[in-house]
Amino acid sequence: MAFLKNYIKEVFSAVRSSLKGMGLTGYYALHHKKEKITQQYPDNRDELILPERFRGEVVMLHDENNEHACTGCTACELACPNATIKIITKFDITPEGKKKKALDTFVYHLELCTMCNLCIEACPTDAIKMAQTFEHSVFDRNKLTKVLNKPGSKIKEGIE
């Protein structure tokens, strides 16, 4: 008798869970206009909304005075798993006459980058971040090697 009871219980739970699943897909089928998440790129290039956490390429932030926050500490270069970043440093002379290490060129190889976000997490001064641009195709791969600090830019005051 216990066997029969279990059997009937199994059949009913199977029917119930099947109906539950079909209810969800049925809801989607009926409300596909409202629920749809497909972005019809490139038709909607102008109003394209990317998710917040989408990662396109590494950029360096510059403020209106052409100043960035990079100290040239090479933490990002060490963090990068596939040698995408190469930092060339120079020595600035401070007003007190001391030598101080500073960023000269921030070389970024986009063609090697996997957008893993480790460099951004490693940066102690939040100088770099991930941009959401993603249309990277070019006809010459040399164009993928980028210099991130703008010409003539220097480090912000007060960042060590």
Partner: peptide, 12 residues
């Protein structure tokens, strides 16, 4: 064995 999910119909 039904309880181990080997033949359980509700998982079908």
């Amino acid at each position: 064995e039904e309880e181990l999910g080997i033949t359980q119909i509700s998982e079908v």
